[in-house]
């Protein structure tokens, strides 16, 4: 018991906060970008749609290290864009918290985008037509008709995006590195302490992740169950 108290009081809690902060910021960015991209893709012509959809979904299918490789190519201080960002704006992406956010956003974005797209595509088009004949402006239709009808899909997309961003490892490790207290997320912490054979600390963070993941799934089920209450299924 005393052992446990000692362990907890001596624990560095920073990975939890870094992970949560990264997850929240990446989810907010993905939320808006994903919805925006989904709207554009749904409206685009079939040819454009196929190509755009492929590019936007790619980070979900690729190993995160491949995405990390490309992110390094773009943002490395030895590359044109990376050095331009640093010299003109003082913005550094590699080995910073900003790198954590960018890596998590790139990896988690497709989940938001695909869920939002699926949600938009199942909105009954007659509702949009009806809203138009009733004189509602296109902006108003988006906020008052399309978004509420797509809400269950968008909410579950947001939750999945958060879950993915929270646990991001591969791309984050490459772009942001593992600087304790700065870019050291929970998943990186687990990998690091395991290398030192510290199973107790690793186990603690594994338990934290398990609890968060379970809560997320629970939340998803609550959201979808509310939506499904009037649909009788096999």
């Amino acid at each position: 018991m005393n052992d446990m108290v000692n362990f907890l009081s001596g624990l560095d809690w920073s990975p939890l906060f870094i992970s949560l902060k990264t997850g929240v910021v990446a989810t907010v960015i993905s939320f808006f970008l994903g919805i925006f991209a989904a709207r554009k893709v749904v409206k685009a012509s079939p040819g454009v749609r196929a190509v755009a959809d492929g590019i936007l979904t790619l980070p979900m299918v690729l190993p995160p290290t491949v995405a990390g490789f490309f992110l390094l190519l773009i943002f490395s201080a030895r590359r044109p864009l990376g050095s331009a960002l640093y010299t003109s704006f003082g913005i550094k992406v590699v080995q910073t918290w900003l790198g954590c956010i960018i890596a998590a956003t790139v990896i988690a974005f497709p989940l938001m985008y695909r869920n939002a797209r699926a949600a938009f595509e199942q909105v009954d088009v007659n509702l949009v037509y009806a809203a138009r004949t009733l004189g509602m402006s296109e902006t108003r239709i988006f906020w008052r008709v399309i978004m509420p009808c797509a809400a269950p899909g968008i909410v579950s997309g947001t939750i999945l995006t958060f879950a993915r961003a929270l646990g991001e490892y591969g791309a984050t490790a490459m772009l942001a590195g593992n600087i304790p207290g700065k870019t050291g997320t929970i998943s990186q912490k687990i990998a690091m302490v395991i290398q030192n054979g510290d199973y107790r600390t690793a186990g603690f963070w594994v338990a934290v992740i398990l609890i968060i993941a379970f809560l997320i799934i629970l939340l998803m089920n609550v959201v979808t169950a509310r939506h499904m209450k009037n649909i009788h299924r096999y």
Partner: peptide, 11 residues
């Protein structure tokens, strides 16, 4: 315009 399925806003 009265739609075949009425197109009432479900929410």
């Amino acid at each position: 315009y009265m739609f075949q399925d009425y197109a009432l806003f479900p929410h």
